[in-house]
């Protein structure tokens, strides 16, 4: 018991200064690729057209790495509508509709001492009944479509849907996205989005007027 306390003190503060400070160690290939040289690029996800990269489609496959280089800055998510009512206590429920597990793992990372999103007044609930936001990860599979709708129905209003990762935004190269099943209020790009991107999206959704 005592030793746990000493161990903790000796370890110091691990938590990132983000969003007040800069984001450290942003995974390079979750940031936006920028064109460096001319040449033919075959983007399997169809994210590149006319030299511009649509991050909502990018799957971090590096097929463009000969001519494009990521800029290293965290991507900003698209916030269509926010939920300012939850500014002090923001509860989220994650539903996995068909992911590869990476997005689940990154959302789970928000708990760890490095990102520690509780410090920002954000919490995970165990039931959509208590949730302000529904984080959808993965493509919408046939088996989970009903469950996704049921979870949305079960949430009290006001509520928002956060499509997290390319799969849930557009379906990526695997299936169909959340569009057409539920209205997506926030789109967090990335395959998987870095914890910073998710955190940033949550903050901006909460603070949006």
């Amino acid at each position: 018991m005592k030793s746990w306390v000493i161990r903790g003190l000796r370890k110091g503060v691990l938590t990132t200064r983000f969003p007040k400070g800069d984001a450290e160690d942003v995974p390079l290939w979750t940031t936006k690729p920028v064109k460096m040289s001319d040449g033919e690029v075959r983007c399997p996800a169809g994210a590149i057209s006319d030299g511009a990269v649509d991050m909502n489609r990018c799957i971090s496959c590096r097929r463009c790495s000969e001519h494009y280089m990521p800029d290293g800055r965290p991507v900003h998510s698209t916030v269509n509508s926010g939920i300012s009512i939850a500014s002090r206590s923001f509860h989220i429920y994650m539903i996995d509709t068909g992911s590869c597990g990476a997005c689940n793992s990154e959302v789970h990372s928000l708990h760890n001492p490095v990102y520690d999103f509780n410090r920002l007044g954000m919490f995970v609930t165990n039931t959509p009944r208590h949730a302000d936001a529904l984080i959808v990860v993965g493509v919408v599979s046939e088996g989970m479509e009903m469950a996704l709708k049921a979870a949305y129905e079960a949430m009290p209003s006001p509520k928002i849907v956060i499509a997290t990762g390319t799969c849930s935004i557009s379906g990526g190269i695997i299936g169909k996205g959340v569009d057409g099943v539920l209205p997506a209020d926030v789109l967090v790009p990335g395959c998987p989005p870095s914890p910073y991107a998710i955190l940033d999206a949550l903050i901006r959704a909460r603070d949006a007027k």
């Binding site: 942003v26 995974p27 590096r62 097929r63």
Partner: peptide, 13 residues
């Protein structure tokens, strides 16, 4: 991993 390999889950490596 992400510093060395560019991605936290080795995608595209």
């Amino acid at each position: 991993i992400s510093r060395r390999f560019g991605h936290r889950f080795f995608f595209g490596l």
